[in-house]
Structures are given as structure tokens and as C-alpha cells.
């Protein structure tokens, strides 16, 4: 095993085993050894986070483990991100993400954010308790490709519907995709309000988001 392989392995292991100390140590080593930061993130940290996501889908891991794995991931990203070479970044798809108005539970949304960032999206996080109008305003402002809406509470689901309606009113439906998810949200509900996609959990959100953008990528003018 080469030194680089060992370090990449430690980066992944640190994340999936929720070991922030190991992740930080391996990240520093990666910088010292001049391992390409992009490689270290994608073949180290992200690999670990994907593995954590897989364990979550298999119900080996639950929210606490994902949260701690993401703590380790962020600790590693903090060290490695400044070393990413500019040219490697490329154009990222933008998602405006938030928990809809009336709900302040944001563990789920935070996990989605991490997974999306890791999955190569630029996430504009509006936080929690966000009114429908704020999603539209921000999406227009940053020329977003997608809006991600999350909630844990049935009482707030009408806000999701309102976001879709506002997009329609502004003639942006289809141009800006809408992805919904969260405890009480179902595929049928997503369909009924005219959302473009439904994600069952954080890991799944990345796949669905990528699918929505690649399958029917709208032509960008200019």
C-alpha cells in the first residue's frame, strides 16, 4: 500500500467511523504529502461519507451516526478545501435548500446539504422556518437550478405546495426544479403538488437531484 492509499483510507475510515481526530490527522497528512486536495476529498472523505450513507440506508447507521460522520467530514473539508486548485472546481449546479416555514427541525436538511455538497452541488442554505417567497427570491437571485424543500411536520406541508405555485406564477416551473423530502412527505404528495422530485432520505437526495438535472436538463440560454 502506498502512502497515498493509506492516507486516503484513513480519511474515509475517519469519516465512516465518526472519528474526527483520525480525519483531521489524515487531512493534515494529505496536505503535507501534497496529495491533490480534490482527490483527498473525493477518494477519501466523500468515500467515507458515501459508505456512512450506505450504512444509513441499510439501517446500520441512524441519524446520530450520520451527524457524527458529517462532523468528521466537515473537519476534514475545513483543512482540505483551501488546497483545492481553482480550475478543478468547474461549474456546479446550484440548489437553494431550506426547511419550510413553520418547522425548525433541521437535522434532516443539514444532512441533505452535506450530501449534496459532497455530491458536487453548490448549496445555498436558507436555514429553517423559511417562507415560500424567500425560496423563490433566492433562487432567482442566484439563478438556481433547483429548490430543495424539507419538513418534518405535516402542518407545514402546504408551504411546499405554495413554492410550486409561486414558481408557476413566475413562469419558472420546469426551469427551476423542485425537490421535496422529509418525514411526512411521500412520493404521492410530491406528485400531487407538482414537485419534480421526491427524496426519501439524505443519501437518496443526491441521486434524485442528479437525475432531475441530467435527465431533463433544460437548455440554458446565454
Amino acid at each position: 500500500m502506498s502512502k497515498q492509499e493509506r492516507i486516503l483510507g484513513d480519511l474515509a475510515k475517519g469519516v465512516v467511523e465518526m472519528d474526527t481526530d483520525l480525519t483531521v490527522k489524515a487531512s493534515r497528512e494529505a496536505v503535507e504529502e501534497k496529495i491533490d486536495a480534490y482527490t483527498a476529498i473525493n477518494e477519501g472523505l466523500v468515500k467515507g461519507m458515501n459508505e456512512a450513507g450506505r450504512l444509513y440506508e441499510e439501517e446500520e447507521y441512524f441519524v446520530p451516526e450520520l451527524l457524527l460522520a458529517s462532523d468528521a467530514l466537515y473537519a476534514g473539508l475545513e483543512i482540505l478545501t483551501p488546497h483545492i486548485k481553482r480550475t478543478e472546481k468547474g461549474e456546479k449546479s446550484k440548489i437553494v435548500l431550506g426547511v419550510v416555514q413553520g418547522d425548525t427541525h433541521d437535522i434532516g436538511k443539514n444532512l441533505v446539504k452535506i450530501m449534496l455538497e459532497v455530491g458536487g452541488f453548490e448549496v445555498i442554505d436558507l436555514g429553517r422556518d423559511v417562507p415560500a417567497e424567500a425560496f423563490i427570491d433566492k433562487a432567482k437571485e442566484v439563478n438556481a437550478d433547483m429548490i430543495g424543500l424539507s419538513t418534518l411536520m405535516t402542518t407545514t406541508m402546504p408551504v411546499m405546495k405554495k413554492v410550486v405555485e409561486l414558481l408557476e406564477r413566475e413562469n419558472l416551473k420546469g426551469k427551476i426544479r423542485v425537490l421535496v423530502g422529509g418525514g411526512p412527505v411521500s412520493p404521492a404528495f410530491a406528485k400531487s403538488i407538482g414537485a419534480d422530485g421526491y427524496a426519501e432520505n439524505a443519501n437518496n437526495a443526491v441521486r434524485v437531484a442528479k437525475g432531475l438535472l441530467t435527465i431533463e436538463q433544460p437548455k440554458k440560454v446565454g
Binding site: M18, P64, I107
Partner: peptide
């Protein structure tokens, strides 16, 4: 706080 309590479990 839910996030913190969850971290505290570990």
C-alpha cells in the same frame, strides 16, 4: 437541542 443531544449520546 436535538443535534447536540444526539452528539452527546457519543
Amino acid at each position: 437541542g436535538a443535534d447536540e443531544l444526539i452528539r452527546d449520546m457519543y
